[in-house]
Design a protein around this nucleic acid. Structure first.
Lengths: 146, 146
DNA sequence: CTGCTTGCAAAGGCTTTGCAGAACA
DNA sequence: TGTTCTGCAAAGCCTTTGCAAGCAG
């Protein structure tokens, strides 16, 4: 971990890349949406709406709470990000929409990704009748051993 | 489905069995706790606090909302039941604490169990440092194909 | 000008908490 | 009698909604 981390945050995606991604998802790239997308997409991460609000306004923007909530819902609906059901009392949003799963540290609240090659899942053989799979969430809950 | 259903509900566990289970979990078996345990443990199922409240009071009992919430939390804390993180807006409680996972029908809200033999998971090789696994939640989200 | 977007404040749903009365040992 | 438990109501947190003002095409 180097001292460059601060500088790198938010630069994983350029302003242009972000607008392109929004447009690809049929999202009109307004100022607020750009700001929220920049925070969310800067790196693979898992943020609550409140954390997004704080991060967006920690920089130069000034985005209201309602807009953050509505925008995050819009992003989920359009497939730009996804919801993570880890904490039953709060919604987390995940900037990584590719197939992967989560370690959740119950002691610290930290969330880590792990890739699908860690597991093999074969649920098709027993899906409920007349249904098709639309998503898969795997949460491995861990706690500190030390 | 026969007309005996009403009579059968709640008889999956006898009054004695329920009290024994409560005592085994260090829970003082009061009237309200017995009622709530009877509803929860009558069969493998997934209920929200509100559903438990309705079911408990649909019978002869009269248990307050606060007691239902507090008691369900007590049961979770004592390991008698477990929380299921499926719907980020509502907590579901699962009467089955053994290893199993869930299909969640996003169209209907229905939850079905599936057993662990459907999947093989080998997360130990990559658990975060200094942690031990404390739980595993797998949710396969499905939607109607018809 | 017309439609989309934003923001404030209020409302909403789910859950927890404070405290007084009831039950129990 | 002292501790535990219950229930009502109020408060709390997170999220959504209504509506007026702002912006873009």
């Amino acid at each position: 971990m180097s001292g460059k981390i601060d500088k790198q945050i938010g630069e994983g995606e350029t302003q242009e890349t972000i607008k392109t991604k929004l447009l690809e998802c049929d999202i009109n790239p307004t100022f607020q949406r750009n700001e929220i997308a920049r925070v969310m997409l800067s790196k693979p991460q898992h943020l609550s709406a409140d954390q997004v609000l704080t991060l967006v306004n920690a920089k130069d923007g000034h985005v209201s709470k309602a807009t953050v909530y509505n925008t995050l819902n819009l992003f989920v609906e359009k497939g730009l990000i996804r919801e993570v059901a880890i904490d039953p009392t709060k919604i987390f949003y995940d900037s990584n929409t590719s197939h992967h799963h989560h370690y959740y540290n119950e002691d610290t609240g930290e969330i880590y990704d792990f890739e699908t090659d860690v597991m093999s899942l074969n649920p098709k053989s027993s899906l409920p009748e007349n249904t098709v799979q639309s998503g898969l969430d795997v949460v491995v809950r861990v706690k500190n051993s030390t």
